[in-house]
Nucleic acid binder design. Structure first.
Length: 1043
RNA sequence: GGGCGUUUAGCUCAGUUGGCUAGAGCAUCUCGUUUACACCGAGAGGGUCGGGGGUUCGAGUCCCUCAACGCCCA
């Protein structure tokens, strides 16, 4: 072992060198590992698995920092801590990225490649990004149990998914049915609602006439319907009118009147005009609307043009009497609202579209046309038939797929659903009765509301990347086929209830004749097979059953994450030890998508909630309040921040900004790679392929660089100066420790003698006690910003600025030195422990350096320091050290020092010039100040000449008055009278302001009566302030006389 | 359209149950290299708390309202 010389410690912490070394030391030492056999109480956190779509950004860095801080504290507190890492296969997102690349690079679609080859490519992508993501997490310092890293599509998770699916299938909580889904015709898949965004585009509103069949006298020959999508009329199965047009119009009118009451002046006229129009419409239209209603009730039918299909006129509340002609065409298979109408009115649903977005055989001569072509043809032909009434221009909301950026078509498809009634209720109960708590509690409501809807969860996705649904299906042409097939399956070798489960799905079309016409089977037989029964699967296939091609929604596997990662359904020691987990830390946008589903799946599969606490952390925004994302160009890579400021600074900065109510706003800067100059990103420059540095004028490239020329430029970093404060703090801590080690030479371990404790020692112990208690409870309550603020203030402005400064004098004194060294070692030791969860690297580095100089430390009992800080004990100081009297005593000294320094500054006295000063105060105060008097010299280069009631102001002096004392600084030959007059005048004004405010309050009889105690306090304060003002006025007089 | 949140110093944020002159970091200005640290030290200037109204002896804090911004759900 080389000898350790503290003089060799550099004045900067070389984080780039240290981080990897320290991380490897932790990892190889097994410190990250949770031990299922441990006697210690478990504490478990599962990571929200990042998507393997791409690299991590600062939002992940925040998320990881918070989890790591918590798990590190718990580990130090003696828990058997486990932070379970992993990544998510992210179904559609990942497949879309790889498909897009395939298209761009090779001009191929997934169909050119085939399922197997595409999935293979996605695995390659996954491996590449997973490595990168896990690397990023490690760089941040995440103390996950990396050996347990899981992936939502790996074998362990796959078994859990299959087991869950089988269980739900068997309980009939999974079923197949037809539903209207968001269909992406480009990716040929359904997309979930949250993957759909609306775009406002200019469109048209066509009004068509549908002839009435056999109108009675007085009835119109046709009704008028309006649509923004004419081609859908091919699938119309009804026209609806409102059942109570009168009441409906009344309701609209009363809503408008409500709105009018709330309207600002500007809006009022608009609303009034709407009301007038409504009244006029009522006058004109109501009889016609009522007539239509009566026709519908009477069973009048319409002839759907072009298709020449008879369709009914029905009554339904979806029709809006306040709009158009009051009639609405119903296309159940291609509009969500119409779909609901069809269910209410028992209407047929005609699917007119193929999977690729072209029209199908149901449309007859239109089959094969695209939607766009069909629209043109339909309009032209209706026009030719003189059935086109009018066309209006109108802005329409067009739903688009977030993934492919193409329009969404509502589409009726076979889908697997999870029945949510019971499952949702179990998750609602868990939060209501407090088995799961959500912090901040305001997020509970969204969770409960969402679950309360109990909408069934469509889980099939027409993708290739994911868990393929483990169901084999065969259609039974007739009723007679069902039993034999069932019997055959039941008699297959290996059939057991634990291996396979059967569901019979009768055809929705109950009319046998119609089924025959549409070539529909009588029923479908579904067999769900457990994992590990390949032979049985084969046997099914030999019977002609085909496996479902769809895969499961990615959230299905994520929902199992807390128990699937621990090996469920096997009864593993891990599951027994670490489930339920302790805390989940995540962001608010996936509370319903993920958190709620984990709760209900955890309850279903394990009978216990998956976690006790959920902490929802803020979101990261840029300086403009916009969410960061790579696609906007304002995204910051955590690695850029780490390479510039270090992982500890990134972490500290993140935690420091993590307050309860606010999102984190982080102004984003470019950093010039040529001159390191950094400058703000603007909405303009953040999307450019290259940017010129305003400092050195040289250009650098950005993530948008595409041309070879641009790519040749050096790439500029994207960072935020928000982390400077944290970096400075790291440096401060580093140097304070360096100083400590430089002064710990000759340290001899021994218990700290209480009778040797000085006032400042006891102050430090009191502070340490309070700070460690506060930091502990802040972190337990997820108040990260409060915890870091407390640590920052304490470490910098108390430990460094006062305690360490004061120790300098004591180190110089051979006699006092050993005690001072023990105190310093002890308090630094404690500070390092407290800071470790937030700043693990630098604290570990200092800890190990410190151990080389003082391997044994302690208070009354001396112990050999733990080899690593990562699993050293969390500080638990003796609460009796907390001492208000000592802290007040110290505050007196700090107040006097502050005044001294201010006088020196305002008098422009150079640091090297020593001044003399006196303090006039009571004998009691003097006793309190005396032990600290010696430090005025070091801290303000000032010598305390006299202290006590008899102190007097020298002939030429500057004066400062506090509640407890008057400070006279002897400025013989130095005084700047004008400056002193100015300062005193300002001081006087302040006091006058304060006095008059107090007087005003005391003159308020009601206040004095209501709060006598507070009034007394103010009265005292007033007396003091008045006496101080008198002193100031006197000094001011004297000064003015000298002018 | 509904819900939640935010608006405090040039910037990023604190501000407990309403109560004495509203705090911090960065930035700015002044002074300063004394045995850790210029990624440092000392000090100063700077805000009437988004607008309006109300409750109260007293409002950044409670209530109403308007406005802007952000997120979630329709």
């Amino acid at each position: 072992m080389t000898t350790f010389n503290p003089h060799d410690i550099p004045s900067r912490f070389d984080f780039a060198e240290a981080q990897n070394r320290i991380f490897q030391m932790w990892e190889s030492g097994g410190y990250f590992e949770g031990d299922p056999q441990s006697e210690k109480p478990p504490y478990t956190v599962v990571i929200p698995p990042p998507n393997v779509t791409g690299a991590l950004h600062l939002g992940h860095a925040l998320n990881s920092t918070l989890q790591d801080t918590l798990i590190r504290m718990k580990r130090m507190q003696g828990f058997n801590a486990l932070w379970m890492p992993g990544t998510d296969h992210a179904g559609i997102a990942t497949q879309a990225v790889v498909e897009r690349r395939l298209k761009e690079d090779e001009g191929k679609t997934r169909h050119d490649l085939g399922r197997e080859a595409l999935v293979e490519r996605i695995w390659k992508w996954k491996d590449q990004y997973e490595t990168r993501i896990l690397g990023q997490l490690k760089q941040i310092g995440s103390s996950c149990d990396w050996k347990r890293t899981r992936f939502t599509l790996d074998d362990v998770c796959a078994r859990a998914v299959r087991h869950t699916f089988f269980d739900l299938f068997q309980k009939s909580l999974i079923y197949r049915g037809k539903r209207l889904v968001n269909w992406d015709t480009y990716l040929q898949t359904t997309v979930s609602d949250d993957e759909v965004f609306s775009k406002t585009v200019k469109g048209q509103f066509w009004h068509f006439k549908y002839p009435v069949i056999d109108p009675k006298p007085g009835e119109p020959d046709y009704v008028i319907v309006a649509t923004t999508r004419p081609e859908t009329m091919l699938g119309d199965t009804a026209v609806a009118v409102h059942p109570e047009p009168d009441k409906a119009l009344d309701r609209v009118a009363s809503e408008l009147r409500e709105k009018l009451k709330k309207s600002s002046e500007a809006e009022k006229s608009v609303v009034e005009a709407q009301l007038d129009a409504l009244a006029a419409r009522r006058e004109l239209m109501l009889p016609k609307l009522e007539q239509l209603r009566d026709m519908a009730s009477d069973g009048r039918r319409l002839m759907l043009p072009l298709m020449n299909r008879e369709i009914p006129l029905v009554c339904d509340v979806w029709a809006k009497p306040e709009l158009g002609a009051g009639c609405v065409k119903i296309t159940p298979a291609h509009d969500p609202n119409d779909y609901e109408v069809a269910k209410r009115c028992d209407l047929p649903m005609i699917n007119i579209m193929n999977r690729d977005g072209t029209l199908n055989v149901e449309t007859g001569v239109y089959a094969g046309l695209t939607m766009k072509q069909a629209r043109k043809k339909v309009v032209e032909e209706l026009d030719a038939l003189q059935l086109l009434e009018t066309v209006e221009d109108r802005e329409i909301e067009l739903p688009q797929s977030d993934r492919s950026k193409t329009p969404i078509e509502p589409y009726l498809a076979d889908q697997w659903f999870v029945s949510m009634g019971k499952l949702s209720q179990s998750a609602i109960d868990a939060v209501v009765d407090g088995r799961v708590s959500i912090t901040p509690s305001r997020y509970e409501r969204g969770y409960l509301d969402w679950l309360g809807e109990k909408r069934d969860w469509p889980v099939s996705r027409q993708l290739w990347w994911g868990h393929q649904i483990p169901v084999w299906t065969k259609a039974c042409e007739s009723e007679g086929d069902v039993q034999p097939l069932t019997d055959t399956i039941l008699s297959l070798p290996g059939f057991e209830k634990t291996v396979a489960a059967i569901q019979l799905e009768p055809c929705e079309e109950t009319d046998a004749a119609k089924r025959a016409k549409l070539e529909l089977p009588f029923a479908s037989l579904h067999v769900c097979v457990q994992s590990g029964c390949e032979d049985f699967e084969k046997a099914l296939e030999e019977l002609g059953l085909k496996r479902e091609e769809d895969v499961l929604d990615t959230w299905f596997s994520s929902a199992l994450w807390p128990h699937s990662t621990l090996g469920w359904p096997e009864k593993t020691p891990e599951l027994a030890c670490f489930y339920p987990t302790s805390t989940l830390i995540t962001s608010r946008d996936i509370i319903s998508l993920w958190v709620a589903r984990m709760v209900l799946m955890g309850l279903n599969n394990c009978g216990e909630v998956p976690f006790e606490k959920v902490y929802i952390h803020p979101k990261i925004q840029d300086g403009f309040g916009e969410t960061m994302s790579k696609s906007k160009g304002n995204g910051i890579d955590p690695l850029d921040v780490i390479s510039k400021f270090g992982a500890d600074a990134l972490r500290f900065g993140m935690a420091h900004l993590c307050t309860e109510t606010q999102d984190v706003r982080l102004p984003v800067q470019f950093e010039c790679p040529h001159c390191q100059h950094s400058f703000d990103q603007t909405k303009k420059n953040r999307v450019l392929p290259k940017v010129a540095c305003p400092g050195c004028k040289k250009e650098f490239s950005t993530q948008w660089a595409e041309t070879e020329e641009d790519k040749r430029l050096e790439k500029g970093g994207v960072i935020s100066e928000r982390f400077e404060t944290a970096r400075n703090f790291v440096n401060k801590l580093w140097n304070a420790s360096r100083f400590a080690m430089l002064n710990l030479e000759g340290y001899v371990a021994a218990p700290i003698a209480e009778d040797e404790l000085t006032v400042e020692d006891r102050w430090m112990l009191s502070r340490l006690t309070t700070v460690s208690r506060n930091v502990t409870s802040y972190l337990e309550d997820f108040k990260y910003a409060d915890a870091t603020r407390e640590l920052y203030e304490f470490a910098w402005h108390q430990f460094c600025s006062f305690y360490v400064e004061m120790l300098k004098d004591r180190f110089a004194d051979e006699e006092k030195r050993p005690h001072a060294q023990r105190m310093l070692a002890y308090s630094l030791d404690c500070l390092l422990r407290l800071l470790h969860p937030v700043m693990p690297f630098i604290t570990e580095e200092i800890w190990q350096n410190l151990a080389r100089i003082c391997p044994q430390r302690g208070w009354d009992e001396i112990e050999t320091a733990n080899p690593c800080l990562i699993n050293a004990a969390w500080p638990q100081l003796n609460p009796t050290w907390q001492d208000d009297a000592i802290e007040n005593q110290f505050a007196l000294y700090q107040a006097a020092l502050g005044d001294l320094r201010e006088i020196r500054n305002s008098q422009n006295i150079g640091n090297k010039k020593k001044v003399k000063f006196s303090i006039k105060c009571t004998a009691d105060i003097a006793d309190l100040l005396r032990p600290l008097g010696v430090y005025f010299s070091r801290m303000a280069n000032s010598e305390l000449i006299e202290l006590g009631p008899s102190a007097e102001a020298p002939e030429t002096s500057a004066t400062r008055t506090t509640a407890d004392m008057e400070i006279y600084v002897d400025l013989d030959g130095l005084i700047d009278i004008e400056a002193e007059v100015k300062r005193l005048e300002k001081e006087k004004a302040n006091f006058e302001k304060s006095i008059s405010s107090k007087q005003r309050q005391l003159a308020n009889e009601k206040f004095v009566a209501a709060k006598p105690d507070l009034a007394d306090e103010i009265r005292n304060g007033l007396r003091q302030a008045e006496s101080q003002l008198a002193t100031i006025a006197e000094s001011l007089q004297k000064m003015i006389a000298k002018l």
